[in-house]
Design a binder for these strands. Structure first.
Length: 480
DNA sequence: TTTTGAGTTGTTCGA
DNA sequence: GTCGAACAACTCAAA
């Protein structure tokens, strides 16, 4: 009997996996495969994502072993690798869950054409999104580019369906094709291993599911307010699990909605969370219609924006040495743990693009490399949203004040204390603006500005005015 | 076709 | 201390 290839991509799980369910229905031997893709034009994973992938593949392999199966690993240009495997094994079908990225979709279509010539069929499923390719259209027949009307229409269109349980066993082929050893991919950093601070993360399907349950039980009820407070665990922290498909967005939806039905969580809180899943859909939908959003402005008017060049300032930003405590706390949390709280992501992104007037692409690329949840649709989408060039973007005059944001969302300074320990003895009233602290307060707290903590790299007022002027120039430049 | 209302997450200034 | 307006007018979506 000819086997079927189950190609895992951004769906590293066994439950709620429509491609897997279809593979089992075929009642043929199943060959689970993961390809470390080197296709030109498809964005290679950043360093933090590679760290995560390493653990997630180990977890998936272990889950498959328990079911009498295994995971075949190959590296290279994915379409070639899959075609090779089809020939080696005589597979009749290749099944996978779609990735709604133009470059990936093109590659998949080409591959399907090639495979059909060697009498192998291809079937594509939607395992990664609430909506498939049939995203809502406006009455005029276009696609939405403003979130709120998009989500009104999309939310009504979401069909969650039944949970697909993980199978107890997968039928094996008589002989397994050769697999590369995961260690040879060197996904885990060596020399130096900078991942010590990642130890709170636990990639894999089982922990993702536990994580979701904990979130719904403990944090969903106050999600609307607490998700903005970086010192507490008010967000779901599901983003990397969702990105790698260790959990499906439909499972998240189901869990949240059923909490509302049990009356254990207020409806409004649940809607807030669903809307965040909605942003994931929105960004995916935008990216599927606009190629290269990691390099091209969604709004072309920004093509002439006068970004400054200043490698020294950029380095200060990446290292968390800007002299603005909430910014520095965020950048250091990112560097240490591969993740940053959402509220703080907005603050640091606003700081880079508006206070420093550095190109959002620099920040996007830095996040791409350092975030465990870096997503090719959401990361550029959110950066462009902050910069003002994106879909339904923030108005340019919305310039976050690092002091105001710190005082509002980290009033006791706990977040700063944790990530910028050299400031931890400053009183809460001054921890977000140490340069205003009297000399003796600084001395008592052991803070020596310009020595063990930097002076602000730019003056807030000056930078804010400069950013507003740059936008005014952009506008007049557009008219002339 | 024209009109109308609305738009993820802010800050500052002056009354 | 609180509140509304200005920031800059623009684009989108629907009636």
């Amino acid at each position: 009997m000819r086997p079927v290839i189950l190609w895992f991509r951004r769906d590293l799980r066994l439950s709620d996996n429509p491609a897997l369910a279809a593979a089992l229905k075929a009642q043929c031997p199943v060959l689970p495969v993961y390809v470390l893709d080197e296709t030109p034009g498809i964005r290679p994973l950043g360093s933090a994502s590679r760290w995560w992938l390493d653990k997630s593949l180990q977890a998936l392999h272990a889950d498959l072993l328990k079911r009498g199966s295994r995971l075949i690993l190959r590296r290279g240009v994915a379409a070639d690798i899959i075609a090779d495997l089809v020939r080696e094994t005589g597979s009749a079908e290749v099944l996978f869950n779609a990735v709604f990225d133009p470059a990936v979709e093109n590659r998949d279509r080409d591959m399907a054409g090639r495979l059909s010539q060697i009498s192998c069929e291809t079937r594509r499923f939607n395992g990664g999104h609430l909506l498939g390719s049939d995203t809502p259209q406006t009455k005029a027949g276009g696609s939405y580019s403003v979130f709120t009307p998009y989500w009104r229409a999309a939310r009504a269109q979401v069909e969650i369906g039944l949970h697909l349980p993980a199978p107890d066993a997968l039928p094996s082929p008589q002989a397994w094709p050769v697999s590369e050893a995961l260690e040879t991919w060197t996904l885990h950093p060596t020399g130096p291993d900078w991942s010590a601070g990642f130890s709170d993360w636990s990639p894999g399907e089982a922990t993702a599911a536990r994580h979701l349950t904990d979130f719904v039980d403990l944090a969903l009820g106050t999600y609307g307010q607490d998700r903005d407070v970086p010192a507490i665990e008010g967000t779901s922290r599901l983003s990397p699990h969702l990105h790698f498909g260790e959990i499906s967005p439909k499972a998240c939806w189901r869990a949240a909605v059923s909490a509302a039905h049990r009356n254990s969580v207020p409806e409004a809180q649940v809607e807030k969370f669903l809307a965040e899943l909605g942003w994931r859909e929105f960004n995916t939908q935008i990216a599927s219609r606009h190629t290269s959003l990691e390099s091209r402005n969604f709004n072309p008017a920004f093509d002439s924006f006068p970004w400054r060049e200043d490698p020294t300032l950029f380095t200060a930003w990446t290292r968390g040495e800007t002299g603005y405590p909430i910014v520095d706390a965020g950048m250091r949390q990112l560097w240490k743990t591969g993740w940053m709280h959402n509220r703080v992501r907005m603050v640091v992104a606003s700081f880079l693009t508006k206070h420093l007037l550095l190109d959002w692409r620099l920040g996007e690329q830095w996040f791409w490399d350092t975030l465990v949840d870096a997503d090719p649709a959401s990361n550029p989408g959110n950066w462009q949203w902050v910069a003002g060039s994106g879909a339904d973007a923030a108005p340019y005059f919305r310039i976050f004040s690092p002091m105001a944001q710190g005082e509002r969302f980290d009033p006791a300074g706990r977040y700063v204390q944790k990530w910028v320990p050299e400031l931890r003895h400053l009183p809460a009233k001054l921890i977000h603006k140490p340069w205003l602290a009297p000399r003796e307060v600084l001395m008592r707290a052991g803070v020596r500005l310009g020595s063990n903590y930097p002076h602000p790299v730019v003056d807030h007022e000056v930078a804010r005015k400069r950013a507003l002027e740059a936008y005014a120039d952009l506008r007049t430049g557009q008219l002339t």
